[in-house]
Simulated assay, not measured.
Amino acid sequence: MTGDRAGDGTAILVEGASDRAAVLTAADLLGVDLAGDGVQVVPMGGAMSVRRFVAELGPQGAGLRLRGLCDAGEVRFFERAGLPDDAVFVCRPDLEAELLAALGHERTAAVLEAEGDLRLFRTFQQQPAQRERTLDQQLHRFLGTTSGRKEHYGAVLASALPADELPAPLREVVQAPN
Results as ranks from 00 to 15, higher is better:
Leu64Phe: 10
Ala6Ser: 11
Pro162His: 11
Gly38Glu: 04
Leu118Ala: 07
Gly82Pro: 03
Thr10Gln: 05
Gln175Leu: 15
Asp136Ile: 01
Arg133Leu: 15
Thr108Gly: 02
Asp136Trp: 06
Gly144Arg: 02
Met1Asp: 04
Leu64Met: 12
Ala155Tyr: 06
Val88Glu: 12
Arg141Gly: 13
Leu29Arg: 14
Pro128Asn: 13
Glu98Ala: 11
Ala47His: 05
Arg20Cys: 09
Cys70Pro: 00
Ala129Cys: 04
Val23Leu: 07
Phe53Ile: 00
Pro162Ala: 13
Ala158Phe: 09
Gly116Cys: 04
Arg107Val: 08
Pro43Gln: 10
Pro169Asn: 05
Val54Ala: 08
Asp86Arg: 05
Ala114Asn: 08
Thr108Ser: 10
Leu118Asp: 02
Ala160His: 08
Arg76Val: 10
Phe77Ser: 12
Ser18Gly: 06
Leu100His: 08
Gly16Tyr: 08
Ser147His: 07
Ala72Val: 01
Ala110Ser: 14
Leu99Tyr: 00
Arg131Phe: 13
Glu132Gln: 15
Glu132Phe: 01
Gly144Val: 00
Val42Pro: 03
Thr108Trp: 06
Thr10Met: 03
Gly82Met: 05
Leu34Gln: 04
Ala21Cys: 05
Leu99Thr: 00
Arg131Tyr: 12
Thr25Pro: 00
Asp94Ile: 01
Glu113Gln: 14
Ser147Pro: 05
Asp4Glu: 13
Gln137Val: 03
Ala27Gln: 09
Asp19Tyr: 06
Arg5Pro: 00
Leu24Arg: 13
Gln126Pro: 00
Ala6Thr: 01
Ala158Lys: 09
Val111Cys: 15
Thr146Met: 08
Ala109Met: 12
Cys91Ser: 11
Ala101Pro: 00
Gln130Trp: 09
Glu115Leu: 05
Asp8Val: 10
Ala155Arg: 15
Phe142Pro: 10
Ser49Ala: 14
Cys91Tyr: 02
Ser49Lys: 13
Leu83Pro: 09
Ala47Trp: 05
Leu34Tyr: 03
Arg119Gln: 14
Arg80Thr: 04
Gln137Glu: 15
Leu34Asn: 01
Leu95Asp: 03
Val42Gln: 14
Glu106Lys: 07
Gly104Cys: 05
Ser147Glu: 13
Glu96Cys: 04
Asp117Met: 14
Leu166Trp: 05
Gln126Lys: 14
Arg131Thr: 12
